[in-house]
Amino acid sequence: MEDIKAHRSPLALQRTVAERTIGHVQAESRTTRLQIANFSFYYGAFEALRDISMEIRDRQITAIIGPSGCGKSTLLRSINRMHDDTPGARGKGMIAIDGTNIYAHDADPIMLRRRIGMVFQRPNPFAKSIFDNVAYGLRVLGWRDRNAIAERVEQSLRKAAIWDEVKDRLKSSALGLSGGQQQRVCIARAIAPQPEIVLMDEPCSALDPIATLKVEDAMLELRRDYTVVIVTHNMEQAGRVSDDTAFMLMDSQTRAGLLVEFGATGNIFTNPKDQRTEDYISGRFG
């Protein structure tokens, strides 16, 4: 018990210290990694996100929660410019990694995506072997050394808490794995190039409870090295894994996504400042 307490106390301390809302100057140990400032997003004339501002801290898990259609995924996908190929989609305002605006004119989306890993709602392994799936990002980066690739693949699979289940069948197709295993292989694939930030778009929504717990274990493992942003429908999950939480809602008139409240997860869940957050968290909201 003593050990566990000693292990957990810095984290608990950090959570209480790290209370922040928009506009407040934070006072905590982790620096800001990703800054979103007055960011709006449009699909043609439709405003999908309005004036979002938040600061995502280094090597912390930030959860984005909110009802369906509130723009959670749009915000997440804006962080690595996944909308670039969608006709009429454009962002306004700033999203900056370490102070560099990724929506600047000279920003290269391909180089950006190499710094950011992404895990999707449904497991989407390539129709390749487990090994080749995880090695894909490395080969994109031009890695040729077989030993180095093999080493990184193993390391990534271990981090994603899937190594023991697949180490004997790395050459078999990733499509033959169960949904939960596929998702963890996808996590390993996303982190293999050692991105700085990992984005997860409802990574557990297609998984059963046991697989969900395994993926959550993997997330906590990732937290040591990576800044993680996760979109989730599951509030218990946000409570279990995240350090900070952003609560979003859809504006009832214009249907634009708004950021209602952002702060340390403990505060959002136990002491929300906004009535709408409280209603949603306590289940009184539709």
């Binding site: 690595n80 392994p125 694939r189 996303a190």
Partner: peptide, 8 residues
């Protein structure tokens, strides 16, 4: 999208 997100 998975490939795109890996910077390919």
């Amino acid at each position: 999208e998975a490939s795109m997100a890996l910077g390919a």
